[in-house]
Deep mutational scan, measured.
Amino acid sequence: NITNLCPFDEVFNATRFASVYAWNRKRISNCVADYSVLYNFAPFFAFKCYGVSPTKLNDLCFTNVYADSFVIRGNEVSQIAPGQTGNIADYNYKLPDDFTGCVIAWNSNKLDSKVGGNYNYLYRLFRKSNLKPFERDISTEIYQAGNKPCNGVAGFNCYFPLRSYGFRPTYGVGHQPYRVVVLSFELLHAPATVCGPKKST
């Protein structure tokens, strides 16, 4: 009989979020998941679920829940969905086509923008091939755009693969920082350890 609540607040209220190319993952297990707390949290810009209804989450049990978190621009949030393409979905964070879970995003301009620009948040701009679902690539190898080998030196046709967002408070909404948490639900042939409040007695 599990009684402790799942530590969703640790994920959602973290002081610093990860850059999207180096997205953070927390495994959540052996706890009671009260999703209504999240669902009623006012400032969400997006709360979209795939393969599961957000209002039914509290009735369900899962083997594991993974909480992935990172920061992207407002106009990139739409790429955090199954079957998407674009710089983020291709080179930074890719969801599987059969994704079961929820994508939760909110504007973090007050936290993550600075006058003069916040350059701490990076994304991958160049990559030889697209990421596989949930693949994480933190390499900083110089990207070779031409035929000539770069030998690890940036220059003509040789690019550092990461780019900084440089968030400023005055940017338009599409270019403002958004914090994103992706909850993915794993249902294995194993005992369920993460259940909603109704199922955990």
Rank of each mutant, 00 (worst) to 15 (best):
N13A: 02
S129Q: 13
L5V: 11
A190L: 11
V37E: 10
R136E: 04
D112A: 00
A192W: 09
F167G: 04
N120S: 13
A14F: 03
C49T: 00
N30T: 03
N40T: 12
T100Q: 09
A67Q: 01
I72Q: 01
Y35T: 08
L5K: 14
F160D: 14
G117T: 09
T15I: 03
V103F: 00
C195N: 12
D112H: 01
A105I: 07
G101W: 00
C195D: 12
Q176I: 01
T3F: 05
H189C: 08
N24Q: 14
G116M: 10
I28Y: 15
K56G: 10
H175S: 13
D98H: 09
C150H: 06
N75G: 08
V103R: 00
G155I: 05
K148S: 12
L38Q: 02
R25F: 02
D90M: 07
R168G: 08
Y21R: 03
G116E: 14
K48T: 10
S69M: 05
F167M: 03
T3W: 04
D98T: 09
F99I: 01
Y165V: 03
A14D: 06
Y123A: 10
K148G: 11
A105H: 06
V181Q: 00
N87L: 14
T63I: 07
I138G: 08
V52R: 01
W23M: 04
T15S: 12
T100W: 06
S53A: 11
G146R: 07
A105V: 08
E141M: 08
A42Q: 12
T201A: 13
N30F: 03
E186D: 12
I72C: 07
P43C: 05
L187T: 15
R179E: 03
N151A: 12
T100C: 12
G196C: 08
N157K: 12
Q79E: 07
Y121C: 06
I2H: 13
N24A: 09
V173W: 14
Q176P: 02
V115Q: 14
L188K: 15
A14Y: 02
K114Q: 14
S78P: 12
W23Y: 07
N92D: 02
G86C: 01
V71T: 07
G86M: 03
Y123L: 06
S19L: 01
V182N: 00
V77S: 05
N30S: 07
G51E: 02
D68A: 01
Y50R: 01
C61A: 12
R25I: 01
R73K: 12
F185L: 06
D97N: 11
S69P: 00
P177H: 02
N13L: 04
T193L: 10
K110N: 13
R127H: 05
G196L: 10
R27M: 08
P133V: 04
R136P: 02
A33E: 05
K114W: 09
V77K: 04
L162V: 08
A81F: 01
Y93S: 02
I28G: 03
D68I: 01
Y165W: 03
E76P: 01
A154E: 14
F41I: 09
V181C: 04
D34K: 04
Y39P: 07
G117A: 09
C150W: 02
N24V: 07
P191C: 07
L111W: 13
N107A: 07
K114L: 10
L187D: 13
G51K: 09
N147R: 12
C195T: 11
S108H: 03
W106Y: 10
Y143W: 11
A154M: 13
I72A: 04
E76D: 09
P161Q: 06
G101Y: 00
A192T: 13
S29I: 07
P82F: 00
P191E: 14
Y143M: 10
P197V: 15
Y93R: 02
Y123Q: 08
W23K: 02
